[in-house]
Design a protein around this nucleic acid. Structure first.
Length: 934
DNA sequence: GTAGAGGCCTAA
DNA sequence: TGAGTTAGGCCTCTAC
């Protein structure tokens, strides 16, 4: 059962990375390899270049930079004229936001003052960019109508609410005269709790602007009086929904879907397809069949270099930007079609890329901004661009007074502003984040993606590239960048190659990890804009799905105030029978345990019976169930829950995606489908977490504790069933024994000698146990461990047999030092080798011998320092010292970190005697004791 | 010396 | 104004 990891600690990246230790350099690649790759691009494009008149212009004088003839490919393809009365406009929407602007004549909605206008950015099949203004959609929320409310009262309610909201405003800079646009009466039902499917009258309150929702809600909650009704508190529903999500849910738009504007229903206003449309006129296509395709998006990756002073972290008000490398690639293609470096001072040419040299830094920045606006990318990537490159560029441009730099978005005249937000939370620690508005472009910082989705020991671009691509950065020490800049054309050329590669690697990684595709599929599946996936958490995705499902049944979501109560009981971990097993151990798992529990027992907000409800509603005991925690839910025969419905859709869609994946031959479509099935799985697993999030949009501990309660019961039952059936008295070779289990899995010692037998019995047992549970709950045989070393709860290792009974797939290690990132490589490697000797070679004495050898190497100072360093700690230390010229102190600090993590509780000067006395490294001690006991 | 709290990271 | 859950091992630090 997997949950997504939390974000890691502070990280340095981009231009600020520390170089790796010496011994890890043996995989250093030849710098010319990347240059060869670059020149290959050039060869392939030769013909095209000649036609476009670009050949022979490797180093281009600045004055000609934006000559249309010189760089025709920078621009998007020509956009044919659009006739709104005869053409439909179809585009893939990739970003969606809203702004306040003057109403447009002929468009629906309010005609006075500023109105909220939804804006969708996208790309057509032919690669033309689209900005679509959607008019006439207004924000709203609900409150239950007071007793005896009649339609006649609507006017008075509206007038009074409008007046108190106006009065509440401290300033009225937009000169709003009408805050409440409409109040309507409508039949709705609260989704929280089952109350006999009784629809009630709700007031739907439509406000003039999204930011008026919060005050209106507050005033109604605190006590509101109108007409002859006494003052009264109103509970608000759906008043905490982002305006974008509200619009998307209501118009059935999901993230990255295709939008069609029928002919005659929109109007063209400006440049490459800037159009206006009424919100009810647009057609949103579900991401199915042909509508799963992805437009030829432009992805720009860039990297900057700064000339910092010796030992000091570059500061934008002092240190110049000397180079900016950019690569642009169309989504779906394999190579970048634009490769440029903007340099300060002359630079020798690099085959396969254009170099633009500037004498003035101001001009360099200005030109790069123009380059970006010309290329008009849909997605901007790079490594740590969000917290380093973009802020640095913006600050530097401000310091140099480059007036036209900070307009990086797609809206003409809209300034890009840097905002620093730091929030503290107990879980995440202090976290500083910078954001820059760039309307219509998705900032897809690869570092942020990796931090969210991958658990890695180190997040430097170098380490990450090696991990995923077996490739490295160009070898340029961070400390010599300034010297290279101050050298000659050739040294600056070396720097430019380095810079180009740093722009290229993120593109390669993006492609290899299929980030864009996977994120798009996630946006489509969960219905949120692409940008939300990187800037927001998990909850919004569930909210989006919940609202969509609820709307179909006229259910509304209450706004609940968060009050943190006590934690609830989670899963059971079966007490392990620790030891070394030289027999096959079969592992049986409940697949998607928590989602299947919610489906099997119809657990949902809408099916929850609150205390006393069963009696009040006259339900018989046949109508509802009592969960292990004593909570009550009506059965699906009474009402089917929203959550089970969502989960069924997700899992059914996943099945379809997997089936399509099997029959699909096109590799690109295959990738899309794989991304889809992954997104569907992750989405299903996060529904449970949402109900248990006490600081959340709609926590419901009755659901989450019932889920874990069922889980506890099931794992216990599984143990009993297996141990009662597979016994000697039932004709088996031995009595089966569950030696360990955690949450949704049991490890069974069946007493058989071969992997094959363990697999066969395991499969049979899983099927038999499954029959004792309500579908879709299913226990599956997953793998055999042979041999198996069970060290403790959540700590074990074994050879993993799944695909074949003859050869193991891998050595699987859980929770042990080898997989933990708070240990130095020496420890991880030592333990890993010991485990290999124990499990693969079956040579415990060899393991002991190896451990002794390593210890002795350590004592004799034969271990390289890089083996003793925890990259995370090192990074943190380096960051603390960044900007301070404290090399000696830093080195000392690193040394002590090494000692501390290698010899816990031991001071470096006393380790020798300490080692003998206390046997340091409890981990090692653990291994030694295990090996000794064999 | 040891008990307990707190930090970190993992399993699921 | 945004944040999915609990269980649990093992380390360090502190108080006694």
């Amino acid at each position: 059962m997997d949950f997504k990891r939390r974000n890691g600690g502070p990280v340095m990246g981009g231009a600020s990375q520390a170089k790796r230790g010496k011994t890890t350099d043996d995989w250093e690649d030849n710098p010319s390899q990347f240059e060869e790759e670059l020149s290959m691009f050039d060869d392939m494009e030769m013909d095209m270049e000649e036609m476009e008149g670009q050949a022979g212009h490797d180093v281009i004088p600045v004055g000609d930079l934006f000559s249309a003839d010189l760089n025709p490919r920078w621009k998007r393809p020509h956009a044919p004229m659009l006739n709104s009365s005869s053409d439909t406009l179809v585009f893939q929407q990739i970003d969606l936001d809203y702004y306040l602007g003057p109403s447009v004549a002929g468009m629906p909605g309010q005609s006075q003052a500023n109105v909220p206008i939804i804006r969708m950015f996208g790309v057509t099949d032919s690669g033309n960019s689209v900005c679509c203004h959607v008019h006439g959609f207004a924000p709203y929320f609900y409150v239950p109508a007071p007793n005896g409310f009649k339609p006649d009262y609507l006017g008075e309610f509206k007038r009074e609410l409008n007046s108190v909201v106006l009065k509440d405003m401290r300033s009225n800079k937009d000169n709003i005269s009408i805050t409440v646009l409409a109040v309507d009466i409508t039949r709705k039902e609260s989704m929280y709790g089952y109350h006999g499917q009784r629809s009630l009258d709700f007031l739907r309150i439509t406000m003039a602007m999204p930011r008026l929702i919060a005050p209106a809600k507050r005033l109604l909650e605190q006590g509101f009086k109108f007409g002859h009704y006494p003052i009264q508190n109103y509970q608000a529903y759906e008043a905490n929904i982002d305006f974008e999500i509200r619009f998307m849910v209501d118009s059935d738009v999901v993230g990255c879907c295709w939008i069609e504007l029928p002919k005659g229903k929109y109007r063209v206003s400006l440049c490459q397809y800037e159009v206006d449309v009424g919100w009810t006129d647009l057609i949103s296509h579900p991401a199915e069949g042909d509508w799963q395709r992805i437009a030829p998006l432009r992805v720009l990756s860039f990297d900057i270099e700064c000339a910092g002073r010796k030992g000091i972290f570059p500061e934008p008000d002092k240190d110049p930007v000397i180079q900016i490398a950019s690569m642009v690639q169309r989504q779906g293609e394999t190579e970048p079609f634009i490769r440029t470096v903007f340099t300060l001072q002359p630079c020798a040419s690099i085959v396969g890329s254009q170099i633009f040299c500037f004498t003035q830094e101001k001009q360099l920045l200005q030109s790069w901004a123009e380059f970006l606006r010309t290329v008009d990318p849909d997605i901007i990537t790079g490594y740590n661009i969000q917290n380093f490159d973009f802020p640095y560029l913006l600050n530097r441009a401000a310091a140099l007074k480059v007036t036209y730099f900070p307009y990086l978005g797609r809206m003409r005249g809209k300034r890009s502003v840097l905002r620093e937000s730091s929030f503290q939370s107990k879980q995440m620690g202090r976290r500083e984040n910078k954001t820059i508005n760039m309307e219509g472009r998705v900032q897809f910082d690869l570092l942020q993606v990796l931090l969210r989705d991958y658990k890695l020991r180190s997040y430097t671009l170098n380490a990450v590239s090696f991990h995923f691509l077996q490739e490295q950065k160009e070898d340029v020490q961070h400390s010599i960048i300034t010297d290279l800049q101050n050298g000659n054309e050739q040294t600056r050329r070396r720097l430019a190659v380095y810079c180009l590669k740093d722009a290229y690697l993120p593109l390669r990684l993006l492609q290899k990890l299929m980030c864009v595709i996977n994120y798009m599929e996630m946006a489509r599946v969960t219905g949120v804009p692409l940008t939300y996936l990187l800037s927001r958490g998990q909850q919004i995705k569930v909210v989006s799905q919940l609202l969509r499902q609820a709307m179909k049944q006229d259910l509304v979501m209450p706004v609940v105030k968060t009050e943190i109560g006590e934690d609830y009981t989670g899963a059971t971990v079966i007490e392990p029978e620790k030891g070394y097993y030289s027999l096959p151990i079969a592992t049986l798992d409940f697949s998607s345990l928590y989602p299947s529990i919610m489906m099997a027992h119809n657990l949902c907000y809408t099916t929850l019976l609150q205390k006393g409800s069963a009696e009040k509603l006259g339900l018989s005991s046949e109508d509802f169930i009592k969960t292990p925690t004593g909570d009550q839910f009506v059965k699906s025969s009474v009402r089917k829950g929203l959550l089970p419905e969502i989960l069924e859709n997700l899992l059914a869609a996943r099945k379809r995606a997997k089936a399509e994946l099997k029959s699909e031959t096109d590799p690109f479509k295959k990738q899309v489908l794989d991304g889809r099935q992954l997104a569907l799985k992750i989405s299903a697993n996060s529904v449970y977490g949402f109900t248990g999030a006490q600081v959340g949009k709609l926590p419901c501990l009755e659901i989450s504790q019932s889920v874990t309660g069922f889980g506890r019961q099931m794992i216990e039952r599984t143990k009993q069933l297996v141990e009662s059936k597979y016994t000697i008295s039932n004709g088996c070779d031995a009595d089966a024994k569950v030696i360990y289990g955690d949450t949704d899995s049991v490890m069974v010692k069946l007493g058989v000698a071969t992997v094959k037998e363990a697999m066969d019995i395991g499969r049979e047992a899983a099927a038999w146990v499954s029959s004792h549970f309500t579908p879709p709950i299913k226990l599956e045989f997953e793998k055999v461990y042979y041999p198996y070393l069970l060290i403790n709860k959540k700590r074990y290792a074994g050879l993993y047999f799944s695909s074949s009974a003859d050869t193991h797939d891998k050595m699987d290690c859980k929770g042990i030092e080898t997989v933990r990132r708070d240990n130095c490589p020496l420890v991880a490697n030592l333990i890993n080798t010991c485990l290999q000797k124990i499990l693969i070679d079956r040579d415990p004495q060899g393991a002991v011998g190896h451990a002794k050898e390593v210890i002795s190497d350590l004592l004799c100072n034969r271990i390289d320092i890089s083996q003793l360093v925890i990259t995370k700690e090192l990074t943190r230390t380096a960051q603390e010292y960044a900007g301070k010229q404290a090399h000696v102190e830093l080195a000392e600090r690193i040394r002590s970190t090494c000692w501390r993590t290698t010899f816990p509780s031991t001071h470096s000067t006393t380790w020798s005697s300490s080692l003998r006395q206390h046997s340091p490294l409890p981990v090692w001690r653990g291994v030694l004791s295990v090996t000794r006991s064999l």
